[in-house]
Design a protein around this nucleic acid. Structure first.
Lengths: 271, 271
DNA sequence: ATATGTGTTTGTATTTCGCAAACAACTTTC
DNA sequence: GAAAGTTGTTTGCGAAATACAAACACATAT
């Protein structure tokens, strides 16, 4: 039975996609056995077995008794990737200083595939929730309801922001989350004008954050930083103003150092 | 021409292996363009292009202009894997306390595929080299010349240690590195008897480390911890003795908490 | 002791991938 | 400023690698 066979271009390698389906399934299931995976993925046991064996040979999967798990190989490669990121290399210590100086949580984030990824986060002395924010497992998250996210969005080309909204929508996390496209663009305009972004309980009730972008010399946004804390404290006028200045200042310091290091380079957009 | 075709069992999926060859190449080359990769991997351009497109679709690769890079997806999955590890979840804060208390570097490590992987590392106040150890990019490394590694090896089944030596050898890093199998087994016997391991400039000249294993209630070693510092300081008798006690104590605390959390479970070996 | 579960192995059919060559879009060079 | 050299991308087709199902060995449960 001849189908439409060999697809268009670029031709996706189904075997590779399926391998990553297995990886995703192992993550969702927190490790699994062959049969369980076969059911979950709607593949035959023998096929799943071959994928697992191959992934194991490549060291991306370990077998613990009859249970297969993702291995720390992902962490090793992941830390390599993070280290490759100049924003991380330069920003890490600055963010630590910022957290120490302000006493609040400080975050360093970037964008990838239209979502925000935290490169680093550190908790200051007076930060609430005792490391909850820092120890929690993070995933890539929407950009429109975080201070780091809005600082990034505000400095991406409009078409890219539209693409991101088309792709992921503007889901609400609290009542304060901006869920309307036009409203978001107005907010981003404000962010650009005043030089910093604000997350006013739009992600978590009771939590406010102040963010600022880091751009390279071509104006491309490399990522952003933020500090966050309880609204009660964050709203005190002098405190608030001080934080804004600290955040913007730190972002500028990072920016200068990044641009001093980046010698050559380009201006395209990631995808 | 009918060859031996379809290989033995388990049948390695060559397409998957090749995908990870591409990942490895992107890591070695710190990102690369299509042609460069094709040359490096001895594949045709079109083939490489398809692998990159697929990996990009899966979000494990990003394209920056004409350059392809590994993405932070590896970090996200990696942090998930680390978080799954009970030794990390329980040990992280204990290791932080240990570093603060001793002022030296503290490490938390485990074994995978016969090599050591650092799950967490933190620098104390008086630690030398100002964060060099902490900020340096880490890879999986041999077990036989580190304090964490020897603590682990000492509590693995002898056959597994033999397998590891057969597979990776005992390469020297300094003049002090143990490179002889019998000598290593004697050393491991000593480690078991006295309850802690010692790395006396076997990895880096001038650096000494003290390690202790963490085992579960079935006696299987889950990983190990260590503190490290300059030999001059580390060799002072009272200081030395204090560190040994601190390390063993911390290892015990972690052990107790891990075993309280681990309810059911197994006793097989990872691979 | 029999039945149902597991992970693993094998034979075979066919889907899918790899190659080479063509194409389009850019740089470089003369 | 056209031509020769780059790139990355697309396509057709033959060859090879993969998916399936069924059998196997082993364990656990009934």
């Amino acid at each position: 039975m001849s189908n439409e066979h060999t697809g268009g271009s670029p031709r996706t390698l189904k075997t590779v996609s399926r391998a990553f389906d297995v990886v995703r399934a192992l993550e969702e299931l927190d490790g699994a056995r062959v049969t369980e995976l076969a059911d979950h993925l709607d593949l035959s046991k023998s096929v799943v077995y071959n994928y697992l064996s191959t992934l194991r040979e490549e060291k991306y999967v370990v077998k613990d008794g009859d249970t297969y798990q993702l291995s720390l190989q992902f962490l090793l490669v992941g830390e390599y990737v993070r280290y490759q990121n100049i924003l991380y290399r330069i920003g890490k210590s600055e963010i630590e200083d910022l957290a120490e100086k302000t006493g609040e949580y400080a975050h360093l984030a970037t964008e990838q595939h239209g979502l925000g990824v935290n490169l680093y986060k550190v908790s200051g002395e007076t930060a609430v929730g005792s490391d909850y924010q820092v120890n929690k497992l993070q995933r890539a998250d929407y950009l429109h309801f975080s201070a780091t996210g809005k600082a990034i969005l505000a400095h991406l080309p409009r078409e890219r922001v539209d693409w991101i909204i088309d792709r992921y929508g503007l889901p609400a996390k609290t009542e304060a989350t901006i869920t309307d496209r036009d409203e978001l663009f107005e907010e981003l305009e404000t962010v650009r004008e005043r030089g910093y972004s604000l997350n006013d309980e739009e992600e978590i009730k009771g939590l406010q954050a102040i963010g600022a972008p880091v751009t390279n010399r071509h104006g491309r946004v490399l990522g952003s930083i933020s500090v966050s804390g309880p609204v009660r404290r964050m709203k005190q006028p002098e405190y608030h103003q001080n934080l804004i200045e600290s955040v913007i200042n730190t972002a500028n310091v990072i920016e200068v150092n990044v641009n001093m290091e980046e010698s050559d380079d380009e201006f395209p957009t990631f995808s």
